[in-house]
Amino acid sequence: MTDTAVTSPIPSRDAFTESGAVSVETITHVHQWNEELFTLRMTRPASFRFRSGEFVMIGLPKEDGKPLLRAYSVASPSYDEELEFLSIIVQDGPLTSRLQHIKVGDPVYLGKKPTGTLVTDALLPGKRLFMLSTGTGLAPFMSLVRDPDVYEMYEEVIVVHSVRRVVDLAYRELLESKLEGDPLLEDDQRERMIYVPTVTREDFRNQGRIQTLIEDGRLFEQSKGPKRFDSETDRVMLCGSMAMIKDHAADLEARGFEEGANNKPGSFVIERAFVG
């Protein structure tokens, strides 16, 4: 893993224009996890507020000068003075093919209205909160897992991250340390955070897809609770590929879970904006 300032000819700040929907922020840090995965940090407007788990639009200008915006979950905690986003590189992607070349000091568009359903407001009270993610779906959970309020609601917070390769395990060291150095979490809260990484294409201490870990019980090994899902007391958040969300949502519903929303809390939630 390397921390880099990547060079690329993108428009100067003069090419950006303010609008009612976006502000212009500045890239403060670029972290390359591997050749396909990177993190961006940017300045945060004093007026920008969000709930842990929400997403916002970020982007760059198109050739005609208009914003090219895409939805990104905020990965930084709500108390952070900056905003952080986790992105995969899609070589033919209109935005990510350019974002991968952004460097410290470059301007970037930030939407002014964060929103989303991967929030605790969309869940009923419970004892355990499971965050099931694949790939960059980990991003909103990195915000939630560092939110002290989450630990006031749940006895255990279990972060599950499934990837193809070991090098795809973004934030692994931080999560394995149980968020060591976090300025707001108490020691007992950090101890109640459980990290379950799993890799599908390489040797690792956990191998297999999340569904396999559910079925053979490995998902629950570190928990003090039941060694299976309990729809009465467990709450689940899903974020990842559309196929992953569809499969796990169906599995949860078969186990008696009901999907929640901001206006009707339930026992599991997905980000509807990302899956339609």
Rank of each mutant, 00 (worst) to 15 (best):
residue 186 E to P: 01
residue 188 D to N: 14
residue 188 D to V: 07
residue 261 A to R: 14
residue 271 E to K: 03
residue 236 V to C: 05
residue 247 D to G: 08
residue 176 E to P: 10
residue 65 G to S: 05
residue 63 E to A: 15
residue 246 K to R: 10
residue 30 V to T: 12
residue 213 L to V: 00
residue 83 L to M: 08
residue 202 E to R: 08
residue 187 D to K: 08
residue 153 M to L: 12
residue 122 A to M: 02
residue 205 R to M: 14
residue 4 T to R: 14
residue 236 V to P: 02
residue 22 V to A: 04
residue 37 L to C: 05
residue 195 Y to L: 06
residue 77 P to S: 03
residue 150 V to I: 12
residue 241 S to M: 03
residue 253 E to A: 09
residue 94 P to N: 02
residue 186 E to L: 15
residue 110 L to N: 02
residue 244 M to F: 13
residue 268 F to P: 01
residue 224 K to N: 15
residue 259 E to D: 00
residue 234 D to L: 11
residue 233 T to Q: 13
residue 157 V to A: 00
residue 174 L to C: 06
residue 254 A to C: 05
residue 232 E to Q: 09
residue 43 T to N: 04
residue 163 V to M: 00
residue 84 E to K: 13
residue 150 V to M: 13
residue 73 S to C: 04
residue 265 P to I: 07
residue 58 I to E: 03
residue 36 E to F: 12
residue 54 E to A: 11
residue 226 P to E: 15
residue 259 E to S: 05
residue 109 Y to K: 12
residue 39 T to S: 15
residue 169 L to G: 05
residue 150 V to L: 15
residue 84 E to P: 03
residue 214 I to D: 04
residue 230 D to P: 13
residue 171 Y to H: 10
residue 89 I to K: 14
residue 3 D to N: 15
residue 108 V to N: 03
residue 223 S to R: 07
residue 200 T to D: 02
residue 156 E to Y: 01
residue 167 V to C: 13
residue 137 G to M: 01
residue 218 R to W: 00
residue 97 S to W: 06
residue 214 I to Y: 05
residue 269 V to I: 13
residue 63 E to N: 11
residue 101 H to S: 12
residue 251 D to T: 10
residue 100 Q to L: 04
residue 51 R to N: 09
residue 203 D to Y: 11
residue 217 G to D: 02
residue 217 G to S: 01
residue 86 L to W: 08
residue 260 G to V: 11
residue 118 L to E: 10
residue 258 E to G: 07
residue 93 G to T: 04
residue 215 E to P: 00
residue 236 V to S: 05
residue 201 R to N: 06
residue 78 S to Y: 06
residue 6 V to Q: 14
residue 88 I to C: 07
residue 117 T to V: 09
residue 77 P to K: 04
residue 125 P to K: 01
residue 176 E to R: 06
residue 79 Y to I: 10
residue 200 T to Y: 05
residue 81 E to C: 04
residue 135 G to F: 02
residue 52 S to I: 09
residue 146 R to W: 03
residue 144 L to Y: 06
residue 24 V to I: 14
residue 120 T to W: 06
residue 63 E to Y: 04
residue 237 M to E: 07
residue 3 D to F: 13
residue 193 M to F: 11
residue 267 S to H: 07
residue 8 S to W: 11
residue 114 P to H: 10
residue 209 R to K: 03
residue 260 G to K: 02
residue 102 I to A: 12
residue 166 V to G: 00
residue 148 P to N: 02
residue 113 K to C: 03
residue 241 S to V: 03
residue 274 F to N: 00
residue 159 V to Y: 01
residue 42 M to C: 13
residue 132 L to C: 07
residue 55 F to L: 05
residue 228 R to G: 08
residue 144 L to N: 00
residue 39 T to E: 12
residue 193 M to Q: 04
residue 275 V to G: 06
residue 193 M to G: 07
residue 82 E to G: 08
residue 266 G to E: 12
residue 133 S to V: 08
residue 141 F to S: 09
residue 67 P to K: 05
residue 183 P to T: 10
residue 103 K to A: 15
residue 209 R to H: 09
residue 62 K to I: 01
residue 17 T to V: 10
residue 216 D to C: 07
residue 115 T to K: 14
residue 117 T to I: 04
residue 103 K to S: 15
residue 47 S to N: 02
residue 45 P to F: 10
residue 227 K to S: 10
residue 240 G to W: 01
residue 219 L to N: 10
residue 106 D to R: 07
residue 160 V to G: 09
residue 232 E to I: 10
residue 42 M to T: 11
